[in-house]
Measured scan of single mutants.
Amino acid sequence: TEEYTYTDKEKADRAAKEWANRGYTVTVTQDGPTYRVRVG
């Protein structure tokens, strides 16, 4: 499991979509002003 942190919702959504397109399980959680994209 890897985790990426973004401050921009659009970038987080785009990253999540790209990982999902590659067949990974993706979870996006909002943590205050940041968005965490957990992959795998």
Rank of each mutant, 00 (worst) to 15 (best):
T25H: 14
E18Y: 15
V28C: 09
T1R: 09
P33R: 05
Y24E: 03
Y24H: 07
W19K: 03
T7V: 09
D31E: 12
D31V: 12
Y6W: 03
Y24I: 04
R38F: 09
V28A: 02
Y24F: 13
R22F: 07
Q30A: 09
D13M: 15
D8G: 03
K11A: 15
G40E: 15
G40H: 14
V28T: 05
K11V: 12
Y4L: 06
E3V: 11
V28R: 02
A20G: 08
R38E: 07
G40Y: 14
V39L: 06
T25R: 09
T5C: 14
K9W: 13
Y4W: 10
A16I: 06
G32A: 02
N21Y: 08
V39D: 00
V37T: 01
R38I: 14
G32F: 03
A16M: 06
G32K: 01
Y4N: 03
R38M: 11
A16K: 04
Y35L: 04
E18A: 08
V39H: 02
Y6S: 02
W19V: 03
E10H: 10
T27L: 08
Y35E: 00
T29H: 09
D8M: 05
A20Y: 11
T27C: 14
Y35R: 01
Y6M: 02
G32P: 06
V39R: 04
G32Q: 01
A16S: 05
K11Y: 07
W19Q: 03
D31H: 08
V26C: 05
E2A: 14
Y6G: 03
V39W: 03
Y24V: 04
T5Y: 13
E18D: 13
G32L: 02
A12E: 00
T25V: 12
T7D: 13
Y24T: 02
K11M: 14
T7H: 11
K17V: 09
Y24Q: 03
V39F: 04
D31N: 07
T34E: 09
R36K: 13
A16R: 04
N21D: 15
K9A: 08
D13T: 10
R14F: 10
G40D: 13
R14H: 11
A15W: 06
Y35W: 15
D13W: 14
Q30K: 13
R38A: 08
E2R: 15
R38H: 11
K9Q: 07
T7S: 10
E18M: 11
P33W: 06
Y4A: 04
T29P: 00
K17I: 11
K9L: 08
E2F: 15
T27M: 09
E3G: 06
A16G: 05
T27K: 06
A20M: 14
G23N: 04
Q30T: 08
E2K: 15
T29F: 13
T27N: 07
D13L: 15
V28W: 03
A20I: 14
A15D: 07
E10A: 12
R36V: 15
T29N: 06
G40A: 14
Y4I: 05
E10Q: 10
D31K: 05
Y24M: 06
T7K: 08
R38Q: 11
A15Q: 05
E3P: 04
D13K: 09
Q30Y: 07
W19H: 05
D31R: 05
D8H: 05
V28M: 07
T27H: 09
P33D: 14
W19R: 02
G23F: 02
V39Y: 02
R22E: 13
V28G: 00
W19A: 05
A12L: 03
V39C: 04
D13E: 14
K17E: 15
G23V: 00
K9V: 06
V39G: 01
E18K: 07
Q30L: 09
T7F: 13
D31S: 07
A20R: 15
P33K: 07
T34R: 09
A15E: 06
G40W: 13
W19S: 03
V26S: 03
T25S: 10
V37Q: 00
R36I: 15
D31F: 08
D13Q: 11
T5V: 14
E3D: 08
V26D: 00
K11H: 12
A15Y: 05
V26N: 01
R14D: 10
V28H: 01
R36F: 07
P33F: 07
E2V: 15
Q30W: 06
Y24N: 04
R14E: 13
K11F: 08
N21F: 06
T1N: 09
Y35V: 05
D13H: 12
T34P: 13
E18F: 15
G40I: 14
T29A: 06
T34F: 15
E18R: 09
A16L: 05
T5L: 13
K11Q: 14
Y6E: 01
A12P: 00
A12D: 00
E18H: 12
Y4F: 13
R22H: 12
T27F: 07
Y35K: 01
G23M: 02
R22P: 02
E18G: 05
T7I: 10
Y6H: 03
W19P: 01
T1Q: 11
R36T: 14
R14A: 14
T1V: 14
D8L: 05
E3S: 07
T5S: 10
R14I: 12
K9I: 06
Y6P: 00
D31M: 08
V28D: 00
Y35T: 04
V37H: 00
T34N: 13
Q30M: 11
E10I: 10
D13C: 15
T34G: 06
D13S: 08
R14G: 07
Y6N: 01
T7L: 11
V37M: 04
V26L: 01
R36A: 05
R38W: 07
T27A: 07
R22A: 15
K11N: 10
G23W: 02
E2H: 15
R38K: 11
E10T: 09
V26Y: 01
D8Q: 06
V37L: 09
T34I: 15
T25F: 12
R22Q: 14
K11G: 10
R38N: 08
R22I: 08
T25M: 11
K11P: 04
V39I: 11
E3R: 04
G23R: 02
K11D: 14
K11E: 15
W19I: 05
T1K: 08
G40R: 13
T27I: 11
K9E: 05
K9G: 06
R22Y: 07
N21S: 14
G23Y: 02
E18V: 07
D31W: 07
Y6K: 00
Y24K: 04
E2S: 13
G32E: 02
V28I: 13
P33Y: 07
G23L: 02
R14Y: 09
G23Q: 02
V26P: 02
K9F: 11
V39T: 03
R36M: 08
P33S: 09
N21K: 14
R38D: 05
N21I: 09
R36E: 03
D13V: 12
D8V: 06
G40F: 13
Y35D: 00
R14M: 12
R14L: 12
R36P: 00
R22N: 12
K9Y: 10
A16Q: 04
N21R: 13
Y4H: 05
E2W: 15
G40V: 15
T25L: 12
A12K: 01
A12V: 03
V39N: 01
K17M: 12
G40L: 13
G32M: 01
Y24A: 04
D13R: 08
K17R: 12
V39K: 03
A20H: 09
Y24S: 02
R14P: 01
A12G: 02
Y4M: 06
A12S: 03
T29S: 10
R38G: 05
K11L: 13
A12H: 00
T27V: 12
R22V: 06
Y6R: 00
D8N: 10
T7A: 11
E3F: 08
E10F: 09
D13I: 14
T5I: 15
T5H: 10
E18N: 07
T25G: 05
K9S: 07
A15G: 03
V26Q: 00
E10V: 10
V26M: 01
A20Q: 14
Y24W: 06
T7W: 12
T27Y: 08
V37K: 00
A15K: 06
T27Q: 09
Y6I: 02
P33T: 09
T5K: 06
T29E: 11
K17F: 11
G40T: 15
D8I: 06
